[in-house]
Design a protein around this nucleic acid. Structure first.
Length: 495
DNA sequence: ATAGGGTTAG
């Protein structure tokens, strides 16, 4: 890790500065492409071409970027798309998109972006909630005369705004679609309906739905969203309404309910404890020849656990097999979670082993669920072992894994271990919950544990996670204890 | 992901 810092000075500084502003704004205007980009911005697979052998000079050092770039073929629009696909970091992907050929001949020719590269960068920025940057790219896309964008790009953008709780912006995107020379169909209406549903704007959904004929005829997806909305009301009357929608779609629109519709309904009935009705719907799938999917079974298994009917789970799993429907990670996670809530960690572990045997990979949900319950039972050693095991098992811990362990360690007063986990998570760029840190700091203040306190403040400072609240805490502590040595502590943090 | 199963912490 130290190596990086010396050989990639400039890009690393940029990464750090982007990391601190949460990627919300750029340190330069989008209209003026950055000129100091280096090949280090490109994904690993690209870099390796130049790093392996030929670009090292006689002293074994990297040659300057300029030399390297001049010997390299310019990036084609096609190549840009594959590089964008590989670049996981949205900020770096944006740099790449804005300036695909940094040191090419002057003046730079306009780059002929492909529609695919627009699609990729917009999706990446949207997923990362970098909306200002995404809008800039959309603006650029609008000016392209060589092609008209596909509707699916806008469906995605509408969904990003919906997920970010910005339903008004989702609506604006929907209205802007024609200005991109793109025709709106029921697909973008569906995306808009889903975005409104996510934000519980049920009346607006109705308004949109009554105008749907301007864009096409509602399809199964439309009805799934409407049925989902009805299920949210959470009472049996609403569910009767949901069932009526299912009948209407057959009678009025001649659309056959699909597995997604059934899954939504089954989830709705499970949610109000009407398991028998949920099972009846599953049977209806069989009689009306809708292929059963694991989603239906996952929903039912989760409900069986919630309603204290875990003895029936093995029967359901057997039936799944008979119907040619294999349990997947989500199904296993429902079982793992169920066992944990029953305080049966042994079974949870067994299920995790079983899923691996059957070729099904545990995901971060599987691990975090078990780690969480190990923490609740005070088995911090085992929780830590499992956390450390995660990368080897192909599932690196996420921010929540760390938060769960950190809170567990604090709860058990294992403050030294908590301090080192905190350092590790900050190093990885994961943000701990403020309340958790405050609690730990307060406990250390009570104990007057200067050593750990100092370590924590250092970790926070290094990760740029010091805030006014933490300062106030430390200063209050220093004054209260009237500690002479702590002036060093503050000095060292300020510098 | 055009919608769509499991929800891990507070």
């Amino acid at each position: 890790m130290g190596m990086k810092k010396t050989s990639f000075k400039l890009p690393l500084a940029l990464i750090v500065s982007f990391g601190c502003n949460n990627g919300r704004s750029l340190p330069f205007p989008l209209s003026q492409p950055f000129t100091i980009l280096s090949p280090h911005f490109y994904p690993k697979s690209f870099c390796s071409q130049s790093v392996n052998g030929k670009s090292r000079n006689s002293t074994g050092h990297r040659e300057t970027n300029d030399t390297q770039m001049k010997t390299q073929k310019p990036i084609s629009p096609f190549r840009l798309s594959s590089l964008l696909r590989l670049q996981k970091d949205p900020t770096l992907a944006l740099q790449l998109f804005l300036n695909p050929n940094p040191s090419s001949s002057e003046p730079p020719k306009p780059f002929r972006y492909s529609l695919l590269s627009y699609d990729l960068i917009i999706s990446k920025l949207g997923r990362a909630k970098m909306f200002d940057e995404m809008e800039e790219i959309l603006q650029q896309l609008k000016q392209e005369t060589r092609f008209a964008p596909h509707e699916v790009i806008f469906c995605n953008v509408i969904a990003f705004y919906g997920r970010a709780h910005l339903p008004d912006r989702a609506f604006q995107v929907f209205e802007r679609i024609p200005s991109f020379r793109c025709k709106r169909t029921v697909k973008s209406v569906n995306s808009l309906l889903a975005a409104l549903l996510k934000n519980r704007q049920l009346e607006k959904m109705t308004q949109v739905f009554v105008d749907i004929s301007n864009y096409g005829s509602p399809d199964a997806c439309t009805f799934n969203i409407l049925i989902h909305a009805a299920c949210l009301c959470g009472d049996l009357d609403a569910l009767k309404e949901a069932l009526r929608l299912k009948e209407d779609m057959v009678k009025v629109y001649m659309i056959k309910p699909n597995a997604s519709i059934y899954t939504t309904l089954i989830k709705g009935f499970c949610g109000v404890g009407e398991l028998n009705f949920a099972f009846k719907l599953k049977e209806e799938m069989v009689t009306s020849n809708v292929k059963l999917v694991s989603a239906v079974y996952s929903t039912l298994i989760s409900a069986l656990f919630k309603h204290g009917r875990k003895e029936e789970v093995s029967d359901i799993l057997r039936e799944m097999g008979e119907n040619g429907c294999k349990p997947d990670t989500v199904t296993y996670n429902a079982i793992i979670n169920g066992h944990c809530k029953e305080n049966d960690l042994e079974s949870a572990h067994r299920v995790m082993d079983e899923m691996v045997e059957k070729g099904c990979k545990p995901d971060v949900f599987s691990f975090n669920t078990i780690i969480g319950w190990l923490c609740k039972e005070g088995k911090l050693d085992k929780a830590m072992d499992l956390l450390e095991d995660m990368p080897r098992r192909g599932c690196p811990p996420d921010v929540l894994s760390y938060r769960i362990i950190f809170d567990g360690l604090c709860e058990m007063m294992q403050l030294k271990e908590a301090t080192s986990i905190l350092d590790e998570m900050i190093f990885k760029g994961y943000v701990p919950r403020n309340e958790s840190i405050n609690k730990l700091v307060d406990r250390l203040c009570q104990e007057c544990n200067m050593e750990l306190l100092w370590m924590i403040l250092n970790s926070l400072g290094r990760g740029n996670r010091m805030n006014m609240d933490m300062w106030a805490r430390v200063v209050a502590f220093v004054y209260k204890e009237n500690l002479s040595e702590s002036s060093n502590l503050i000095d060292s943090l300020i510098s």
